[in-house]
Design a protein around this nucleic acid. Sequence first.
DNA 1: GCCTGTGCAAGTGTATGCACTTTGCGATGA
DNA 2: TCATCGCAAAGTGCATACACTTGCACAGGC
Lengths: 217, 217
Amino acid sequence: MVRAIADRIVTGIARPGDKLDEVSLAERFEVSRTPVREALRQLGAMGLVDQRPNRGAIVTVVSPEHLASMFESMAELEAICARLSAERMTAAERRALETHHRESARMVRLGAQDEYEAFNTDFHTRLYQGAHSPHITEITMATRSRLAPFRRAQFRLPDRVAKSWSEHAQIVAAIMRGDGAAAAAAAKAHVSIVSEASAVFVSAGESAAARNALPAQ
Amino acid sequence: MVRAIADRIVTGIARPGDKLDEVSLAERFEVSRTPVREALRQLGAMGLVDQRPNRGAIVTVVSPEHLASMFESMAELEAICARLSAERMTAAERRALETHHRESARMVRLGAQDEYEAFNTDFHTRLYQGAHSPHITEITMATRSRLAPFRRAQFRLPDRVAKSWSEHAQIVAAIMRGDGAAAAAAAKAHVSIVSEASAVFVSAGESAAARNALPAQ
DNA sequence: GCCTGTGCAAGTGTATGCACTTTGCGATGA
DNA sequence: TCATCGCAAAGTGCATACACTTGCACAGGC
């Protein structure tokens, strides 16, 4: 239930600013309002939706400043994960990371954006888990979820896939030689670039939200 | 409602492992089960309580490994906040931080643990907000909340208050001269010490939880 | 013509009832 | 004596009903 609504937000079906009507959602998922309400409360605690007392919930609309702050957090968190991964990953994890990264090169050559996106998500998840610190993994993945709606279109930018892959390569290289500082720097730079690539689409997303605010929907 | 239950957890009235019975809580706060359920869902999303399907909620009982991970995250997050504070705090914020820190010296001389604890919380909050990055502030404060139950008794250790103050002094000094790296290092060391100071009480807390598991409560 | 007050509608907040899952205890069998 | 099955009680999951808040529209007065 939570997953279902969260997916609609994270995948962009429900856009920032959209009203999340309890009865509509209840009808759509063919349950009563109660589970919907509880799901919305959870999503509210996660920060994905914004609850206004007696006025319902909307998909969290973040200001450009807050979005920048989330990307900044993401860069810092990824840097920590990369550093800890370089220091703590087991030999098996390092091998798996490198193999996985090599395999994704095929996606780059083919220009397969969607497939590469899945590889990309998996790559970063390995980084988070390689830190061997459950709570850091947790807050990093939570932040990623909140950023997901704003990051989707980044691979549409020309050459973004190829550049992303080469940035990954730097991170992998640093981890393989156990250089935590280099891994952290590479990861931070990587996310910062994603931030800039995504910022291009923010204004587009905002005007869409503005459209939704019009009477005609 | 959420605040009320969270307070019982954060202040240690409800201890890790305690069952959070919906009907009991509903009677205690003189409301029906529905708002209690929703509050528990939110607390579950925050990580303060652990929800088991069809088996109710308990105050999250963290393994020593997970606790260590949370303290580690805290150290990293505080380091980030300290670094950003050193780089970004306004002149007014710096002045206020220094003044506040000086005033707390009185608490140290008097050995007033409880008052110092309030000052301490305020001090760290200033650090988080000085980073001028709403999301970093948010996740840092969330992590602090989750650690609160395990950190309460740290100031009972001999000289901990005085040492804490001098550690704060180092952080303040680094921030005043805009030295981000030094501020980060000092903050990280400070939290690491808190981690060790608190670890002493973890076993005590665990045996208390074990007692609660006994039929006699 | 504009502003203000009242009424209505939409939708949230809470209470309560019922069904279902789980767990503990007891009984029966090997 | 121990294990397994069954039953009962406790408690959660969901549905529904009702009260209350809020926003908007329309009408009346200034």
